[in-house]
Structure formats: C-alpha cells, structure tokens
Amino acid sequence: MARLLVMYRKPEDEAAFDRHYSDIHIGLAQKMPGLKGYEISRGPVQSPGGPSPYHLVAILTFDDTAAVTAALESPEGQAAVEDVGRFATGGVDILIFDDQPAAG
C-alpha cells in the first residue's frame, strides 16, 4: 500500500477552513481514482512536545505510489489540488510513500 499524507498548517480562519474542508474538499478528494481509504485527524494535532503547527492531517491510501501519482494527475485529482488553494491559507505539506508493516 501507499499513502498520501497531507498536513494542513493552521489557517487564518479555522472555522472557515473546517467548513470548506468538510462541505467541499472531502467530496472532491474522494472522487480521485484508485483511492482505497481516507482518514482525517480529529481535534488538535499534537507533537510529543505539545502543540504542532498543523490544524488537520489527512491520510489517503492507494495500492502503490504509481496509483497516487495517477490520482493526482487525473482531472479529479487536479480539482482537489486546485481546491486546496481556496481554503488552506496556512499552507500545506504533502508526502507520498509506500508503507510496510514494522518488523517486530
């Protein structure tokens, strides 16, 4: 499996961010081809040292990194990427990676 990790920094207006994210952005992102799972954080995003600079974290699951790339390049993915600029006023960090179970 592969993950698309989207970390949204604290926006200028948290209520407006939350409203747009739940009312519009989730629906756009869920239309991306190849999406297997979609999880978002709930409540404050913390670090081991306390508060973090992030307001919300989204984890999208795909079969592999090629599927992530294809999803982002699709018309549906482009619509979701373009929408980020409409509400993520604090900025966003995006990571793509393959995952595997930890040895143990």
Results as ranks from 00 to 15, higher is better:
76 E>S: 08
48 P>L: 11
3 R>C: 00
32 M>V: 11
15 A>M: 03
104 G>M: 08
89 T>F: 02
63 D>F: 04
25 H>A: 02
48 P>G: 14
17 F>G: 05
26 I>Q: 01
101 P>W: 10
63 D>N: 12
33 P>Y: 09
30 Q>V: 05
99 D>L: 00
32 M>F: 04
82 E>K: 10
20 H>Q: 00
83 D>H: 09
85 G>Y: 05
76 E>L: 09
103 A>M: 11
66 A>N: 12
85 G>R: 08
85 G>A: 11
33 P>L: 12
70 A>L: 03
44 P>N: 04
50 G>H: 12
22 S>Q: 14
14 E>H: 07
61 T>H: 07
42 R>G: 10
25 H>W: 10
15 A>R: 08
102 A>P: 03
89 T>W: 03
63 D>L: 05
30 Q>L: 14
6 V>S: 05
76 E>W: 02
74 S>W: 09
50 G>M: 12
83 D>V: 11
78 Q>M: 07
20 H>E: 00
14 E>K: 14
70 A>I: 02
70 A>M: 02
72 L>H: 02
4 L>T: 00
83 D>E: 04
4 L>D: 00
24 I>P: 00
59 I>D: 13
62 F>A: 07
95 L>G: 14
104 G>V: 14
43 G>Y: 06
69 T>P: 00
20 H>P: 02
31 K>T: 13
59 I>K: 06
41 S>C: 08
6 V>H: 07
46 Q>Y: 04
94 I>H: 01
70 A>V: 01
73 E>F: 01
23 D>F: 03
99 D>W: 00
101 P>C: 02
27 G>S: 12
21 Y>E: 06
38 Y>G: 06
15 A>Q: 08
90 G>V: 15
11 P>D: 00
35 L>V: 13
84 V>I: 15
85 G>W: 06
11 P>R: 04
68 V>A: 01
38 Y>S: 05
9 R>L: 12
65 T>W: 01
97 F>D: 07
73 E>N: 14
69 T>Y: 04
43 G>C: 06
73 E>A: 15
102 A>L: 10
35 L>F: 02
61 T>A: 04
47 S>L: 14
79 A>V: 03
100 Q>S: 13
14 E>R: 15
74 S>M: 09
47 S>W: 00
84 V>E: 13
71 A>G: 05
63 D>S: 13
74 S>R: 11
38 Y>N: 07
86 R>K: 15
82 E>H: 08
31 K>D: 10
9 R>S: 09
51 P>E: 10
62 F>M: 06
40 I>A: 07
44 P>K: 11
90 G>T: 15
69 T>M: 08
98 D>R: 02
50 G>F: 15
44 P>E: 10
70 A>D: 11
94 I>F: 00
37 G>E: 04
42 R>V: 14
62 F>Y: 14
25 H>Y: 13
44 P>R: 12
97 F>T: 15
2 A>G: 05
50 G>T: 13
82 E>P: 01
104 G>I: 11
85 G>K: 11
98 D>H: 08
3 R>Q: 13
90 G>L: 14
76 E>H: 05
82 E>T: 07
45 V>R: 12
6 V>M: 09
28 L>G: 07
19 R>Q: 15
